[in-house]
């Protein structure tokens, strides 16, 4: 009887372990969710979600992952939205107007991101807490740029000191620092100033360039950015060969040297040929005479 119980017990253990072994064949991957908070030009804040997974020791972006974003607590009525990552593993969501009251009720907020899991990946969560802050930019006629960082305390904006920020000129692919200093730190008045040293930088056709002051990946305030357009660049003059005589121009813009050469050759050769045709008529005349 005891033997039967032992055999039965061992059978169950064996069955469970075999089930466990089978389940290992469909082991799901782990996802890492990153949350970033952005405010550009003191407008509506938005969140950037980045989802990645480790493959062969390297992080790779994961697309088509549905992530729920909520404000402060994960409950009905606080849902910012449900986003799906693109091929870069990224998705964005703005804070919707429906959450305005809750947004205004506090100077600090937490964002929760959660993925429920699917056939390939385990569920995953992430959170981020930021304080409300804003950045201002001002310029003077002697080309000095002043950026001011303010944070919300109770119901008013107060300057923040010792915040690292960048003051730069917006270019096509990246931002170029306005002088040799790569980054600046705010003083007790919340201000950081930089002299503009990029005098010959090309602007648009009116010489306008876009200045930018930005805080990047700040633990307390996230990513803040402000822009200002100033006419400090050199005017862009388009160089256009369209009206010039070139080998690649239209037929009415053939280079003079080519016209000269081609017509010289054609006129010479065809002149000879015409003279030969005339000599046929001369031969004919001689024959008739």
């Amino acid at each position: 009887m005891l033997n039967k119980k032992i055999i039965g017990f061992l059978s169950i253990i064996l069955l469970l372990s075999s089930y466990h072994a089978l389940s290992q064949d469909v082991q799901k991957g782990d996802l890492s969710i990153g949350l970033n908070y952005f405010v550009n030009n003191n407008k509506v804040p938005y969140l950037l979600v980045k989802v990645k997974t480790k493959v062969d020791g390297k992080f790779k972006p994961v697309s088509d992952i549905a992530v729920n974003l909520s404000l402060d607590k994960d409950s009905a009525g606080t849902l910012i939205g449900k986003v799906v990552t693109n091929e870069k593993g990224e998705a964005t969501a703005i804070i919707p107007a429906t959450l305005k009251n809750q947004w205004n009720s506090s100077i600090k907020h937490s964002f929760l991101a959660s993925f429920d899991g699917n056939k390939k990946y385990e569920s995953s969560k992430a959170d981020l807490t930021v304080g409300k802050a804003k950045i201002l930019i001002d310029t003077t006629s002697d080309r000095k740029i002043t950026a001011t960082v303010l944070e919300m305390k109770d119901t008013s904006w107060v300057p923040v000191k010792a915040v690292e920020l960048k003051i730069a000129v917006r270019r096509l692919d990246a931002d170029l620092s306005v002088n040799e200093t790569a980054s600046f730190t705010t003083d007790s008045t919340g201000q950081a100033s930089a002299d503009f040293k990029r005098d010959s930088i090309p602007g648009d056709i009116n010489g306008n360039i876009v200045l930018v002051a930005k805080i990047e990946d700040n633990d307390q305030y996230g990513n803040l950015l402000i822009e200002k357009t100033v006419p400090w660049g050199s005017k862009f003059v388009a160089v256009n060969n369209f009206d010039r005589r070139t080998l690649f121009a239209t037929r009415d813009k053939t280079p003079i040297w080519l016209l000269f050469m081609a017509y010289s050759i054609v006129i010479t050769v065809w002149g000879i040929l015409i003279s030969l045709v005339i000599s046929i008529f001369k031969i004919k005349k001689l024959g008739e005479a």
Binding site: V269, I272, S279, I283, K284, L286, E288
Partner: peptide
């Protein structure tokens, strides 16, 4: 070619034309 009578003048003109053609045809 009925006008060709084979006169020396005709031959002279024809030979000259052929020589000019032979020179012209090479670069062309």
């Amino acid at each position: 070619g009925s006008f060709w009578k084979g006169t020396p003048e005709q031959f002279k003109l024809s030979e000259k034309a052929i020589n000019i053609l032979c020179i012209t045809i090479i670069p062309v």
